[in-house]
Structure formats: C-alpha cells, structure tokens
C-alpha cells in the first residue's frame, strides 16, 4: 500500500501562512514528520488561495524545501500545468503528477509531461461535466484515461486511477460506487492501472473522522486499492492498513506485524 502524506497543502492554515511569508520551517517540519510516520510520498499543493500566476514559483519552492528536508519523492498536486512543470523541473526522483481529468486537452498536456519527466500520473475519473454519479460512468472515464495514457506511452503501472471519493455526509451513495470502481478498474487493461483515493474527503465535516477514514480505507483495500493520500500521522489509520495488509495476505503475518509496518 502506497501512503501519500496529505499535509503539505495550502488548504491547511499553517502551510498557507508559510507560503504567504515564504517561511520554509513549517513545510520542512511537515515533510520530516510525515516521513517519520511512514509516508512513501509527500503530496504538495499550493492550495486554492495562491494566484494562478504565483503557483509555479510556489510549487517549485515547496518541492525544494520538502526534498531538502527528506529524501521522499513528491506527489505534485495542482491543476495548473505551469505549476506542475515548475515542480517537475526541480523534483528529484520519480514524481507523481496529481492530476489530470479525463478531458482530452488536459490528458494530452499531463500525460506528455509524465512521459517527459518519467513520472507517474493520477487520472481523475471525471471530466468537465463533473463527477460521475455511479461506477459505470466512472469506469467509462477511467477507460478514456487508460487509452490516452497508453497512446502517450505511459506504462499502466505509472497510471493511478482516482475514482473520486466524496464526503459521506453529503453524497452518501457515492462511497459504494467508488469501491465498485476500484474493483473493476483492474479489468480495464493487462497489466492493470493502479488505483488511488484522496481518503480524507470521505469524512469532510463529519464527526468521527478517523473512524470513518480507516473503515473506508480498509474497505477500499479489500477492493484492491493500491495507494491513498491520507493523514499518515493518524496511528489508528496506519494500524488498520497494517492489519488489512495481513488479512489480505499481502504481507506475511508475524506477532510484531504492527511494529514492522511502522518501521518501514
């Protein structure tokens, strides 16, 4: 299970303020904290507050600070192609582009960037018409992403389909459709693309956020999920990932399985 730490995002107030003041300390601290908690990638987002023309410079700045603080690769989280390329240009190692929608113009732009920088890429199962209502419509868009990624020469193992998780308190019927999408995405190609979700969205503005997050993540893992953008400092959540990895026979059991998982 690939764990992508969600915390370096301008939607969080401390990061937004750090960006405004160009103060590297909070960004570096979150990079180190998430690495220590077991993140494999760091999601990096300027947040919606930054003006579009400032985003490339901010993205470059965030990537540099995060990678100076840790050796982890980043998941560059922006819809702005210029900001994406600015981040890719300074990124060390294999990045993940987060993300393209299934709109032709965006796919052409982002898949080409992924190939040029030898990066993986997240494809959202949505287009300009919005988020699909059920699994079938999500899969139709996922197939668009698979076909276009293949046409650009993106290997399937570098394509992550994101079926788009919505908050359970406002769009309850979507949760089960996302699980079904995760299951069926694996049938779209051989070898199949991988799957990723932005987990915390499921529990936006709910009570019991941690419980909802970890319950849903375990359900998604059972459906075949490969990666998630999440709160890596939620210990109960990571314990659930470790346990699900054992119960799904992805790891060999031993009595110290929690400890070994947290040491990876």
């Amino acid at each position: 299970m690939i764990l992508i730490g969600e915390r370096i995002n301008g939607m969080f107030r401390d990061i937004r303020e750090a960006i405004e003041k160009r103060d590297p300390a909070p960004v570096a601290a979150w990079a180190r904290r998430q690495a220590a908690a077991g993140a494999h990638y760091l999601d990096i987002s300027t947040g919606p507050a930054a003006a579009a023309e400032d985003q490339p410079v901010i993205m470059e700045w965030l990537v540099r600070i995060a990678q100076e603080a840790t050796a982890l690769p980043c998941c560059l989280d922006t819809v702005n192609p210029d900001a994406m390329e600015a981040g890719l240009r300074v990124h060390q190692g294999k990045a993940i582009l987060n993300s393209t929608s299934a709109d032709q113009e965006r796919m052409d732009r982002f898949f080409a960037l992924a190939v040029r920088y030898d990066a993986a890429v997240i494809g959202l199962a949505m287009n300009e018409q919005g988020v699909p209502k059920d699994a079938n419509d999500r899969l139709t868009l996922a197939m668009e992403l698979v076909a276009n990624a293949d046409a650009h020469g993106v290997p399937m193992e570098d394509l992550f389909i994101d079926p788009l998780v919505l908050p359970v308190n406002v769009a309850q019927e979507h949760a089960v459709e996302v699980l079904e999408t995760i299951r069926q995405v694996k049938l779209l190609a051989s070898p199949p693309p991988r799957t990723v979700i932005g987990l915390s969205n499921i529990s936006q503005r709910t009570r019991e956020r941690s419980l909802i997050n970890r319950t849903y993540l375990v359900m998604a893992m059972a459906a075949g999920l490969d990666a998630a953008i999440l709160d890596v400092e939620d210990k109960a959540l990571l314990d659930a990932v470790a346990t699900a990895s054992i119960l799904l026979n992805r790891e060999v059991y031993c009595d110290s399985f929690l400890k070994t998982f947290h040491q990876r």
């Binding site: 060999v252 059991y253 031993c254 009595d255 110290s256 400890k259 070994t260």
Partner: peptide, 11 residues
C-alpha cells in the same frame, strides 16, 4: 512455520 521464522528474525 513462516510466521515464527519472521518473528524470530525480528527479535
């Protein structure tokens, strides 16, 4: 026993 083998390595 693979589980015990792994555990012993950890210890």
């Amino acid at each position: 026993d693979i589980n015990l083998a792994k555990q012993l390595n950890i210890l």
